[in-house]
Write a protein that binds this DNA or RNA. Structure first.
Length: 195
DNA sequence: TACCCTA
């Protein structure tokens, strides 16, 4: 008997709208990125066809809460990476300089996106990390795929923010141990030091 | 800049 397996691994679904400009980088070439997200998260991800009159693509994520959380995070991270790239390339420093005239624009932009990501990540209360099924899911071999290659950037400080993904990092510990910890620059560490 | 997957 696998009593309680279905009860502790409910199938939820979450829908979100992604702008057409961002959906490309989320899907990737021949769907490489979205397929990797599907494999890593273990969630069913449905991306609707382009809707006329709307600049959005409807994305439906289905699976266990943990799977949805991982998929959601990866999509958000890719979207944020795209957003920060656009923000960095756009040479229009606007009202932010009024409040932070002394700080560098790039630093404030990065810190803001971190805060945005932390705010947009789903509520931690929906995920019961201590349930046995969730733990076995996290220790699934699928999670051995290095996520950093997916994101194409060093997102380790952001990963630490998300509770679900921080427990995910336990499963990734053999990989994170091999990762150069010194890649976190001192300037970034100063950025997040509250004192 | 765009990447167009799976169902």
């Amino acid at each position: 008997y696998f009593a309680g397996l279905d009860a502790t691994a409910p199938t939820n679904s979450h829908e979100l709208a992604i702008p057409n400009d961002f959906i490309g980088c989320i899907i990737g070439r021949q769907g490489s990125k979205i397929n990797e997200i599907r494999q890593v998260s273990g969630a069913h991800i449905k991306i609707a066809s382009a809707t006329d009159g709307s600049a959005m693509r409807q994305v439906t994520i289905t699976g266990s809460p943990a799977s949805i959380s991982v998929a959601q995070y990866l999509i958000n991270a890719l979207e944020m990476a795209k957003y920060t790239m656009q923000a960095a390339s756009s040479a229009t420093p606007v009202d932010l300089n009024l409040t932070f005239s002394q700080s560098a624009p790039t630093a404030s932009t990065a810190a803001t996106s971190m805060a945005v990501l932390a705010a947009t990540t789903p509520a931690p209360t929906t995920i019961n990390v201590h349930s046995p099924s969730t733990l076995s899911t996290i220790q699934n071999p699928h999670y051995a795929v290095p996520i950093s290659s997916l994101l194409g950037m060093k997102a380790l400080p952001v990963l630490a923010v998300h509770p679900a993904t921080s427990s995910l990092m336990q499963g990734l510990s053999p990989y994170t141990a091999k990762m150069p910890t010194s890649s976190i620059k001192k300037s970034e560490r100063q950025k997040f030091a509250p004192y």
